[in-house]
C-alpha cells in the first residue's frame, strides 16, 4: 500500500493525466447533452497536453532561453533547462483543439436553431417523429 502511494506521489502528473483523460472520455461517451460532450472532448485534449508537458519537464530545470555568449563559451547544459520541444508541439495541438472546438460550437448553434434543444434524446425524438 505504502509503496503504491509513494509511486503515485512520485509520478502524480501522470496519474492526473490518466484521471483527467478518463473524466473526459466518460463525458464524451456517457453524457447525453451535446455541450457536455464537447466539454468532455476539451478535457480529454487537455489531459494529453498535460501528458506532453510532463515529458519535457525536469527537476530544477530552468526556462530554455540561454545566454548566447555563455552558450558559445561553455556550451549548453541540457540538464539545466527543460526540453522545449514537447511544449512547442503542444502549442500546435492547442491550435488544433481550439479550431475543432470552434467548428463544433458553430455546428451546435446550427443544431440548436434546427431542433431547439441540445439534448441528444430530444433531438432523436424530434427526428423520429
Amino acid at each position: 500500500m505504502e509503496q503504491l502511494l509513494s509511486e503515485i506521489v512520485a509520478k502524480y502528473n501522470y496519474w492526473i493525466y490518466v484521471v483527467l483523460m478518463m473524466i473526459g472520455f466518460y463525458a464524451m461517451i456517457g453524457k447525453r447533452n451535446l455541450v457536455k460532450k464537447l466539454l468532455g472532448m476539451n478535457i480529454f485534449q487537455t489531459a494529453i497536453i498535460l501528458f506532453y508537458v510532463s515529458i519535457g519537464s525536469k527537476r530544477g530545470g530552468g526556462i530554455p532561453i540561454v545566454d548566447k555568449h555563455a552558450a558559445m563559451l561553455h556550451g549548453v547544459d541540457a540538464t539545466g533547462v527543460v526540453n522545449p520541444l514537447p511544449h512547442v508541439l503542444m502549442l500546435t495541438a492547442i491550435v488544433v483543439s481550439v479550431s475543432v472546438t470552434g467548428v463544433a460550437l458553430a455546428i451546435l448553434i446550427r443544431i440548436y436553431r434546427k431542433y431547439d434543444t441540445l439534448e441528444e434524446d430530444e433531438i432523436l425524438e424530434k427526428i423520429g417523429r
Binding site: 464524451m28 460532450k37 472532448m41 467548428v103 455546428i107 443544431i111
Partner: peptide
Amino acid sequence: ALSSFNYIIMGS
C-alpha cells in the same frame, strides 16, 4: 449537422 457533431467527437 448532428452527424457531423458525432463525427467530431469520434474523430477527436
